[in-house]
Design a binder for these strands. Structure first.
Lengths: 181, 181
DNA sequence: GTCTATATACAGATAGAC
DNA sequence: GTCTATCTGTATATAGAC
């Protein structure tokens, strides 16, 4: 699996996009095939079942997670600021995969729940050395979760009430002051 | 509609429970009728379509919201602490309705998104007089959203990594200190 | 008010041609 | 590797008996 075929990736992109924009129920194999520009049979060659499609998205999350953790740990303005900046839906590949998997998690796909929980644990481990105590760490994690929740509720292109620009900077500064030792 | 029949309410309870425990896809009219102990025809007498079922849940949210806002405004330990305490899934009727509607919102039901946004605005208005500035208010709101997100991801009875007991008290105290004038 | 029976559409998945 | 055709189950909704 060193070099997965391009068609495979574009099918996964289509599935992810449908989950984000129209929700889990709309992300059928039929709709996914149509959006990816292949037939149902073509899709089923790459992913033998809907579970295989979900597994593909989970694998994508794990790959993107490694990069993200590395980036947070080496950020010039510090891990906490970097973490919070990227917690807001920037439209990054990781953000998209997280929202897509959260839709699946909320429809009983426990493997998706597990994968999201694993990523959250990686984040906690990266930030714990930077925070005063466990309460401060939880504050940071919950603010990040809150940003994701608002983005997750914004289905159909309606943006949630999430701070941006200067407001986000001010929020990051407030969180830093409240959690730094 | 001053006194809705009991059967109607128990159908709504069943629908809500299925959304929370098994997700939007599992919350079919068939499954809802079975869980409520009525036939499909019986359900359809009270709710003529699935949209009517969703509307019923939205109406329930509005009724519960009024009580909640009143309770927050008059809480002995202050609105901020009261708001955060009730943001954690206590299993209250309001919490359940919020999670159920968030599942619908994430499946393209824009009326559910609107209702949840309206409630969030009511909360903001109740807390704004209690906070230093808009940034502090957003911090509180996002922590609350984060608590809901973690509970929302806990499908099938697997609890999320949400603070409880003394840890929650410590978190509330940290947020209060960071946001009080 | 509550039931059974049924119509129509679409979901996931299989078989096999090209 | 990609396609069409088809099977089987289940979703929402209607009709009408009791």
């Amino acid at each position: 699996m060193a070099r997965p075929p391009r068609a495979r990736d574009s099918v996964l992109d289509a599935f992810e996009g449908l989950l984000i924009e129209d929700g889990e129920r709309a992300a059928t194999m039929d709709a996914t095939a149509r959006r990816a520009g292949v037939s149902k049979g073509g899709l089923l060659y790459h992913f033998r079942s809907k579970d295989a499609l979900v597994d593909g998205l989970i694998e994508r999350l794990r790959v993107l997670s490694v990069d993200d953790i590395e980036q947070i740990k080496t950020a010039p303005d510090g891990p906490v600021a970097a973490f919070m900046r990227t917690s807001i839906m920037t439209g990054s590949a990781l953000d998209r995969t997280i929202i897509a998997l959260s839709r699946l998690a909320q429809n009983g796909h426990s493997s998706a729940s597990d994968a999201l929980r694993d990523l959250r644990t990686l984040w906690e481990e990266a930030l714990r050395p930077e925070t005063r105590d466990e309460t401060a760490l939880q504050l940071i994690m919950l603010v990040s979760d809150g940003l994701y929740f608002n983005n997750a509720l914004a289905v159909g292109g309606v943006p949630g009430p999430v701070p941006a620009g200067h407001d986000l900077d001010a929020l990051i500064e407030l969180v830093r002051r409240a959690t730094r030792d």
